[in-house]
């Protein structure tokens, strides 16, 4: 039995899957497109809902997965299957012969500039959740001088106009977390969250939402933002609708944070074609038994894990990664 496994993608899903497979005695190769492991987790500062450090979390994942063999800045060029063995050729021409493949290529953040009406990339005070997280992480103080701050939920999520009908699942609680963190850094700031629904489904999320209102005085306005512009002083003028009072509103802000949602990985089509698996209408990779087995594909020996199949929280991703490792083990022990 070939006990070597290829994991495509070195983000949290790939790393945790590798950890589990290594504990089960398998040799693991991780092919990562970028120069470092960790995916989006590497760029984040703190994690919802309890504020755990993202870098410490990543460090723990990496400590356990250090027995895997990493190929950085590398992509899989082709995959063939012969006599139950997958032969993967990498972009550096390395050939790997493995018994199973796990796809953990994750997601991409929705490019906020596509929502042209919000002015990302045009108006200086408009940033994304990722930009703000980077500011928390690197201590970019100029952002935290802003005294009037808005958060726009569902940017590129639940939005047919940008072909993303799905909910990104993590943006509501991320916005609440970031709004609270902002208030910690600038207690004088007036902070507004513009939302469609608040989907506080996870343990601790509702508590964080209540804390945001009671402790931090963050104002939650149910309604979508229609447009953003700059006034003569360079401040942002935002128009929205408050659907609870059925009134249009206009606020002037210093900083606007767009909660970019989770979009499919742009490489999904290529990966699906290479492996002979399908993508769904939303562009995420397709599972053949989504209720019974959320790792299984229609190709024997190929498994999926993490947000390559749709938006997920980090704990969900890690659980799914462990499940994928067990699925691989079950497949190779058959």
């Amino acid at each position: 039995m070939n006990r070597e496994i290829l994991i495509i993608g070195g983000g949290p899903a790939g790393l945790e899957c590798a950890n589990s497979l290594i504990s089960l005695g398998y040799k693991v190769f991780i092919v990562e497109k970028s120069a470092e492991p960790g995916g989006h987790l590497r760029k984040w500062d703190r994690l919802f809902p309890y504020g755990a450090s993202a870098s410490e979390t990543l460090e723990k994942l990496l400590q356990q997965s250090n027995k895997a063999l990493f190929f950085y800045e590398t992509e899989v060029k082709s995959i063939k299957k012969s006599d139950g063995v997958f032969i993967a050729t990498l972009s550096d021409e390395t050939q790997l012969h493995v018994g199973s493949i796990v796809v953990a290529t994750g997601f991409s953040l929705f490019p906020a500039a596509k929502k042209e009406e919000y002015g990302y990339g045009i108006y200086n005070g408009v940033i994304t959740n990722a930009d703000l997280e980077d500011a928390f992480k690197t201590g970019k103080k100029e952002f935290f001088k802003a005294n009037r701050v808005g958060f726009v939920h569902c940017v590129g999520s639940r939005d047919e106009k940008v072909c993303n009908r799905h909910c990104s699942k993590v943006c509501c609680v991320t916005a609440v977390k970031q709004a609270c963190e902002f208030k910690d850094l600038n207690p004088e700031a007036e902070v507004y969250c513009f939302y469609m629904d608040l989907r506080m489904f996870g343990r601790g999320y509702e508590d964080l939402y209540l804390k945001a209102q009671n402790k931090y005085g963050i104002r939650f306005i149910r309604g979508r933002v229609s447009e953003v512009a700059e006034d003569v002083d360079g401040c942002l003028v935002l128009k929205a609708e408050d659907t609870l009072t059925s009134r249009p509103l206009k606020v002037t802000l210093d900083l606007l944070v767009l909660m970019s949602g989770i979009s499919k990985n742009p490489d999904n089509d290529e990966i699906a074609l290479m492996l002979g698996i399908d993508t769904d209408e939303d562009g995420f990779l397709s599972l053949c038994e989504p209720n019974l087995n959320n790792n299984k594909t229609q190709v024997e020996g190929v498994f999926l894990t993490g947000s390559v199949t749709g938006p997920k929280t980090l704990p969900e991703t890690l659980n799914e990664a462990r499940a994928a490792a067990l699925a691989v083990h079950k497949y190779l022990s058959r």
């Binding site: 500039a113 042209e116 002015g119 990302y120 990339g121 045009i122 108006y123 200086n124 700059e230 360079g234």
Partner: peptide
Amino acid sequence: MNINGKKKIW
């Protein structure tokens, strides 16, 4: 304002 952002859209 970043005019390059507008140029990209244009």
